[in-house]
Design a protein around this nucleic acid. Structure first.
Lengths: 127, 127
DNA sequence: ATGGGTAGTTTACATCTGTAACCTGTTAAT
DNA sequence: ATTAACAGGTTACAGATGTAAACTACCCAT
């Protein structure tokens, strides 16, 4: 895990999502192509966001014929960190509270629960 | 539920937490007293945050001998909104994925799961 | 060679955030 | 009456964020 897990802003997150989905390195052109489907940012905006992400140390740009951009934090790692923050701030530090609220709000239905149950019934003892 | 659920910043959230915990209206002096235990903000900082929260429409100030401040969004409401955003952005929109990850990361242990199970075994049919 | 597209780099600029000082008026204590 | 404390209101100011234009250098097509 990374040290302080720098804050990734909303706009930056859109870029990260593209990089995460691609699961590898992408050149600007490809990033642009992906983002054009969801946002209508100018290319220069995307370039600014990539620059800031590199500065923050969460993306690495590798020079080839052209720069290739690659995430240095995995989506899972970042998700875990962010989720923990959420739990600390809004669920009194208890993951159980979060899940209870999801159940209460019907964000998890019976099928989900069944799946989770089987999913974790198995891998439980092997460690 | 509120329309757009304005963004509450990190600093502002500290103030909201005090208001939520107090579950009622609080005058500045009380808010200050609570916050002094966790932050060492100057009073003017707290006043600025309260002003911004009022502007954003998430806190109401009622004039008595002195202003009393009261949250207009409940913690639960805000938590639900924020959690949904998290799920959308980092768990492919699936609450199940979130929970799976909590289980995988041991953020939920067997006791938690047991509790959740009994907690929701009961209230399930009555609606 | 000339012009259009694109990558990389620099600069811009309004708004938002974090943090606070300052001013004014009132109250409470000396 | 004088002053210390505090509430309410106004102003400040640096750094972060959202969004982008401009400039430079190169490659490709005419």
């Amino acid at each position: 895990m990374s040290k302080l897990v720098t804050k990734i802003t909303d706009s930056e997150m859109e870029v990260m999502r593209v990089l995460w989905e691609a699961d590898g390195e992408l050149p600007l052109a490809d990033i642009r192509k992906h983002l054009m489907q969801t946002s209508n940012w100018e290319t220069s905006t995307i370039k600014t966001l990539l620059r800031r992400l590199c500065q923050k140390g969460v993306v690495l740009a590798t020079k080839k014929e052209v720069f290739y951009y690659k995430p240095l934090i995995s989506k899972e790692e970042y998700a875990e960190h962010t989720t923990q923050r959420l739990i600390d701030r809004l669920y009194s530090g208890s993951a159980k509270n979060l899940v209870a609220s999801l159940l209460g709000n019907k964000k998890l239905d019976d099928t989900d629960i069944e799946e989770l149950r089987t999913m974790f019934k198995v891998g439980d003892k092997d460690e």
